[in-house]
Amino acid sequence: MAKWKLSKSQLRDAGQGYLFMSPTIFTIVVFLIGPIIFALYLAFNNVNLLGDTSFDFVGFDNFTRMATDDRAIIALQNTAFYVVIVVPTQTILALVLAATLNAGMKGEKWFRVIYFLPTLTSSAVLVMIFMWMYRPDGLINTILGSVGLPTYNWMNDPSVALISIMIMNIWATAPMFMVIYLAALQDISESLYEAAELDGASAVQKFWYVTVPLLRPVTGFVVIIGVIGTFQLFDQSYMFSGGSGGPNNSTLTVVLLIYQYAFSNNQMGYAAALAVSLALIILVATLIQRKLQKDEQVY
């Protein structure tokens, strides 16, 4: 750095540049970098905000505590299970929906609008509607019962509750990714399909050997966004369980646990440590995913 010698005009140029950027820099520092640094600071402290504010530095205590915290482990298991089921399902569903909508059916535009509607609805409203449909005497059980299928106590049976949330979320988020796939599908050159046809490929083969490989970069994006979104599951499980994560911790997710520690138990330091750990987990998951994708790249 010391090797550089800036002339006066260069300095003035740089100053001007930073001056123009200052509103953005200010916003980023106050609302993004500041909170991140503060959260890191909190994670290494025992924090009391109520009454006499106190910050006691405790080193890695907040992090080692997680290993013995059963609820943190349950929350992580629930969240991981949720990610593993929801991300592939919603990605495949989105791809299939997009492909069918791109096939040139009649009334395609209407279907696009209808499919996209769940994404436009506020998640709180969605949860309310689903909770109503999930009641033991609600719509879903009535339909299942009328065709002779088994019915479930969707919200109060610990073995089913998280699956209920999964179904709801897949239904609500798949259309958003469908739109992304749709946009990507329009980019695939018609000539590739023509060439495949000349080679005698069937519709399924065209989908499998032309569409899917060419969509791979988009799939990567969809999966990464999906992983990040599902790891942060909060609002649905919060509303489903009234904030408790019950029944029997079955809908307890990592973010819900963070909320409970931060706002109900007044242990902001431990909550911040959990949040930092979650961020690391998401980062690692994303990196692994990107690595895998790079290895597979064929074009």
Binding site: G245, G246, P247, N248, N249
Partner: peptide, 8 residues
Amino acid sequence: NQFSSAFL
């Protein structure tokens, strides 16, 4: 949380 699971 736990009582409800015993209850079920």
